[in-house]
């Protein structure tokens, strides 16, 4: 908790070239509608990669394929490979609970469970810890405190851990939704427009928090907000009409995009 947040140009993070998520030739259909076309995309470990593109371009679909939460819809068909830490998550023998333990997700609208703050933090932990019942209250308190400290929420909520999480402000809810992923030590955090329901101040606070988690977790963030992608990510990928158009260092993409479509989009000609 005492380690200072890594700075944007800390070499130890960016020097890491290991791939956390490898998407190979991945296509996806909703019923008969093809939403993704042969996407190839590598997400490097320990950095923040942002996914940008106009509405309906498939960026959320791609994100939601990585933890297979799209499976819930029941009419999704896929082709290709998505490897998370070396294992193809589309294989039929993949244990979804295991996968989702390693790949946490933060949603567009904060969605704390209608339980207390404490229960929200311990939810994932008890799911994935077989002997969770035997853990003492002190151990669980410790876990709750650590998770809340990590998202800078501890001081605000420490006196009302038994209050309902849904009564918190949106900013606090979203931070809680990040905090509840941390006790099971995920490797990858998927964030689907994590700030789009928040006001500018809350956005800044959550962005700062995400930046702090960088290094420890691999973060893939869908965003509608180009300014956010620019200031809060290391690498950036641009999608259009279900295809991945360009993937580069954020600084590079925003200054010298290689494709015309990318240039048009970041200059605001559409989207």
């Amino acid at each position: 908790m005492e380690t200072p947040p890594p700075t944007p140009d800390a070499p130890d993070v960016l020097a890491n070239t290991e791939i956390a998520v490898r998407v190979k030739d991945f296509s996806l259909w909703y019923g008969t509608f093809q939403a993704l076309f042969a996407v190839d995309f590598n997400v490097k470990q320990g950095i923040i990669t942002s996914l940008i593109g106009p509405s309906g371009c498939g960026k959320s679909t791609l994100l939601r394929s990585i933890n297979r939460i799209n499976d819930r819809l029941g009419y999704v068909r896929t082709e290709g490979v998505i490897e998370v830490l070396g294992k193809n998550v589309l294989d039929s023998d993949v244990a979804l609970p295991q996968l989702r333990k390693q790949v946490g997700m933060v949603f567009q609208r904060p969605n704390p469970l209608p339980l207390s703050i404490r229960e929200n933090i311990l939810f994932s932990y008890t799911l994935h810890t077989p002997d969770a019942r035997k853990r003492t209250k002190a151990e669980k308190d410790q876990i709750v405190e650590e998770a809340l400290r990590e998202v800078l929420l501890w001081d605000t909520v420490k006196d009302r851990l038994d209050h309902s999480a849904t009564a918190l402000s949106l900013e606090q809810q979203q931070k809680l939704c990040i905090a509840r992923l941390l006790p099971v030590k995920p490797r990858v955090l998927l964030m689907d427009e994590p700030c789009s329901a928040l006001d500018p101040e809350a956005t800044a606070a959550v962005e700062e928090l995400i930046w702090q988690l960088r290094g420890e977790y691999t973060i893939l963030m869908v965003t509608h907000n180009m300014a956010q992608a620019r200031r809060a990510s290391d690498e950036c990928a641009f999608m259009l009409m279900g295809k991945l158009v360009e993937h580069a260092d954020t600084a590079e993409m925003f200054v010298t995009p290689r494709h015309k479509e990318t240039a048009d989009y970041i200059e605001g000609r559409y989207g």
Binding site: I69, L96, K101, N111, F123, L127, H128
Partner: peptide, 8 residues
């Protein structure tokens, strides 16, 4: 969705 995304 939230619970299932956490692996429930």
């Amino acid at each position: 969705e939230a619970a299932e995304a956490m692996g429930a």
